[in-house]
């Protein structure tokens, strides 16, 4: 069981790394939002599911029936549900603000290599 959680957690941290490198490397504002919005949702989900999973399967049967452990895992799932709703909304709000303010998207043809 701890192997499954470890793999999930490492995958989550890997996607956080992808998001960070994307934010640092991408050429313009809108594509940075791509890296930020998507990778963060997936990475948060993977890492939190890993912890919730490990929390329940800590002491096999005894922890499955104890109310405290199950409650903590449910709380972690609540965080995930909240992130699912909130993160795209925040991304959309930032993008709309950028669109109204008038930040130019980077386009390929404008830049002659």
């Amino acid at each position: 069981m701890s192997l499954v959680s470890s793999i999930l957690l490492i995958l989550g941290v890997f996607f956080f790394g992808i998001g960070t490198i994307g934010i640092l490397r991408f050429p313009d504002f809108y594509s940075r939002l791509h890296a930020a919005g998507k990778c963060d949702v997936l990475a948060t989900t993977l890492a939190l599911v890993a912890v919730a999973f490990f929390n329940i399967h800590d002491f096999s049967w005894a922890s499955l029936t104890s109310w405290d452990n199950v409650r903590v895992s449910l709380k972690i799932l609540t965080i995930i549900a909240f992130v699912y709703v909130a993160s795209p909304t925040a991304t959309h709000a930032i993008t709309k603000a950028a669109f109204i303010v008038g930040i130019e998207p980077w386009e390929k043809k404008k830049r002659d290599l």
Partner: peptide
């Protein structure tokens, strides 16, 4: 989506494969 972003981000010549519009 995240796999695709990972491919684009880790590509060494990133600016050639992306074509935003």
């Amino acid at each position: 989506a995240s796999i695709e972003i990972a491919y684009i981000v880790l590509h060494p010549r990133m600016l050639e494969i992306m074509d935003p519009r």
